[in-house]
Simulated scan of single mutants.
Amino acid sequence: MAAPADSGPAAVQSVDRALTILELLAADGHLGVTEIAALLDVHKSTASRLLTTLEAHGLAEQLPDRGRYRLGVGVLRLAGATRSRMDLVQESRQVTSALAATVGETVNVVILSGRETLYLDQVSGPSALQIHNWVGKRNPIHATANGRVLLAHMSEAESDATLAALTDGGGELTRLTERTLVTQQAVRADLAQIRERGYAVVRDELEIGLTAVAAPVRGAAGEVVASLSVSGPTFRIEDRLDSIAQQVGAAARAVSGRLGWSG
């Protein structure tokens, strides 16, 4: 069977050339097809085809008067997504550092990435057992406090679709420990409690012996953009659950305020 047209060395070379075009446009501002072809050492038709693809994705645009190309506004969209994550880490670090020092445990800032959680930042308190460095890691959305917070603040249609997509052939969610909630009904019931009390508690569902408490972080318009959590050994968190929940909620509101939320 022939390889798909979009796979193999030729596809990799095309991606490399397209990225090089973006770098050339960033450096020079405006370039024509002939100039780009010469710089890439490719035929003019190849350069034109690559520019057309970039233009279709909003990453390059043609100037109407001279036929030359410049970077498109799609680049700003991509940069904005990265910038928003950087801003979130920057604006939360002072708050999460203070929280970690106070509670002594690990504090994480987490966002939604597809149907998983993505850990953006982590600060460890003095009592934290440095077993995991979660930054850059992903976890199942249904079995973590951060994931449950993010699920709880989706629309009902979005959360239902997410849970349905995560079920296996038998209709259950992935079981990570004997404590993991694996039915959609059980998770939905917990999501309702999270919305009512304002925070999530997940005990021993991702790992036995690990408990996390998480609360939502809101953007300027009030939308939930992330989750902030404290996690640590279950026996230590359980003894201080109410106090930690209050502190996590206060920290999440403080970060939300730094992001422009005034609620």
Rank of each mutant, 00 (worst) to 15 (best):
V187M: 02
Q184L: 01
R175N: 11
A152M: 09
T180G: 09
D160L: 08
L176E: 07
G170N: 13
S159W: 05
L166K: 03
G170V: 07
D168A: 07
E158K: 07
T177M: 12
D160A: 14
A186W: 04
E158S: 10
L163P: 03
L173V: 08
T183V: 06
D168L: 08
L176R: 04
G171F: 00
A161T: 07
E178F: 12
L181R: 14
T177D: 10
E178M: 15
G169T: 12
D160F: 02
L173H: 05
S159E: 10
A161D: 11
L181D: 11
L176I: 12
E156T: 13
T180P: 11
A161W: 01
A165D: 04
Q184Y: 00
L166N: 01
E172F: 02
T177S: 08
L181V: 09
A165I: 00
E156Q: 13
R179C: 12
E178S: 15
L166I: 03
R188P: 00
E178I: 15
T162P: 02
L173P: 04
A152V: 11
G169N: 13
V187D: 06
A164P: 01
L181P: 05
E158Q: 11
E178A: 14
E156D: 15
M154L: 15
D160Q: 10
V182W: 13
L166T: 01
E158I: 05
A152F: 03
D160C: 06
E172A: 04
L163G: 01
L166Y: 00
A157N: 12
G170R: 14
A161R: 11
A161V: 05
R175D: 12
V182L: 09
L181T: 09
R188T: 05
L166G: 01
E156P: 05
L166R: 02
R179K: 13
L176T: 09
V182S: 15
T162F: 00
G171W: 00
T167A: 05
V187Q: 08
A186F: 03
T177A: 10
V182M: 13
T180F: 02
G169E: 13
A157F: 05
S159P: 06
A161P: 09
L181A: 11
Q184M: 05
A157G: 10
T174I: 14
S159C: 09
R179Y: 10
A186E: 11
L163W: 00
L173D: 05
E158H: 07
